[in-house]
Amino acid sequence: MVRARERRTGRVWRVRRLSRFIRTEFNTMESNYMKFRYVIWDFDGTLFDTYPAMIQAFERGLADFGVSVPRARIAALMANTLAICLETLCREYSLEPEALDERVSYYHQQTTMDQEPPFPGAMQVCERLVAAGGQNFLFTHRSRDSMLRFMDHYHMAPLFADCLSVEDGYPRKPDPAGFIALIEKHHLLREQGLAVGDRTLDILAGQGAGVRTCLFNAVPDAEVQPDYVIQTFAELETILGVVDL
């Protein structure tokens, strides 16, 4: 009876070892079929849905000066940079940039991080890429403190191998210097990389760095064509080959 129990126990352990081996081999095979091994992400408007709060801050700041601007107009200007948005509105409505900037900043500081969450599926695609043996990187025009507060609040920091912010001193996109720095620092292969962003300048930076590009939640510029255009991160999972991992 004891020997029979030992034989059964031995069979159970062999089955468990075989099961672990199969899972490991399957994950390795899945990883080998991945089209891209790393993603260089944009922050605002790509990973995090921050634009609505920013637009509202501009609306409220402009209202303090008796100015009303359609949300679509503000959004279109912000698609370039916040600085261009501010400068253009001040020029068009004869406002002092410092004064408008102060009011916009005041209202935006009242926004909580819960009002600027990650886009649906953003965390999942980052998790699945890491689980498949890939890496996430981030290059943003935000300050490091602001970036880390968001990443820590939403528990996303461990999913990123490296993040560059404005303090790192690289030129703003569309200059590819920040992307190139990440590629060279981590000895990445350009043919295995994908840059994901929501603006033309993100696509130009990726193209300048020699990686493939993916435009999220936007219409491509007629003169700057990305390799992929997506509206959801479920589509990105398919592109990366990390579906159901």
Score class of each variant (00 low, 15 high):
residue 1 M to E: 12
residue 1 M to T: 10
residue 10 G to L: 09
residue 11 R to V: 14
residue 14 R to F: 12
residue 15 V to H: 13
residue 15 V to K: 15
residue 16 R to S: 10
residue 19 S to W: 15
residue 20 R to W: 09
residue 22 I to N: 05
residue 24 T to Q: 12
residue 25 E to P: 06
residue 26 F to M: 12
residue 40 I to V: 06
residue 40 I to S: 02
residue 47 L to Q: 05
residue 48 F to S: 10
residue 49 D to V: 01
residue 53 A to K: 02
residue 55 I to E: 07
residue 56 Q to W: 11
residue 62 L to I: 10
residue 62 L to N: 03
residue 63 A to N: 05
residue 68 S to L: 04
residue 70 P to F: 05
residue 71 R to V: 14
residue 78 M to R: 01
residue 80 N to F: 13
residue 82 L to S: 15
residue 89 L to E: 07
residue 93 Y to F: 13
residue 94 S to I: 02
residue 94 S to A: 11
residue 96 E to T: 13
residue 98 E to T: 12
residue 99 A to R: 10
residue 100 L to P: 03
residue 106 Y to M: 14
residue 109 Q to I: 10
residue 109 Q to C: 07
residue 113 M to F: 13
residue 119 F to R: 01
residue 121 G to K: 06
residue 123 M to Y: 14
residue 124 Q to Y: 06
residue 126 C to H: 07
residue 129 L to E: 00
residue 139 F to R: 04
residue 144 R to F: 10
residue 146 S to L: 08
residue 146 S to A: 12
residue 153 H to R: 12
residue 154 Y to N: 06
residue 154 Y to S: 10
residue 155 H to M: 10
residue 156 M to W: 01
residue 157 A to S: 08
residue 158 P to C: 00
residue 162 D to E: 09
residue 166 V to P: 01
residue 166 V to W: 06
residue 167 E to D: 04
residue 170 Y to A: 05
residue 171 P to T: 04
residue 172 R to C: 09
residue 176 P to Q: 04
residue 182 L to M: 00
residue 184 E to C: 05
residue 187 H to V: 11
residue 189 L to N: 15
residue 191 E to V: 14
residue 196 V to D: 01
residue 199 R to Y: 09
residue 206 G to S: 02
residue 210 G to A: 02
residue 215 L to P: 00
residue 219 V to K: 11
residue 222 A to T: 06
residue 236 L to A: 01
residue 238 T to H: 13
residue 239 I to M: 00
residue 241 G to I: 03
residue 244 D to R: 10
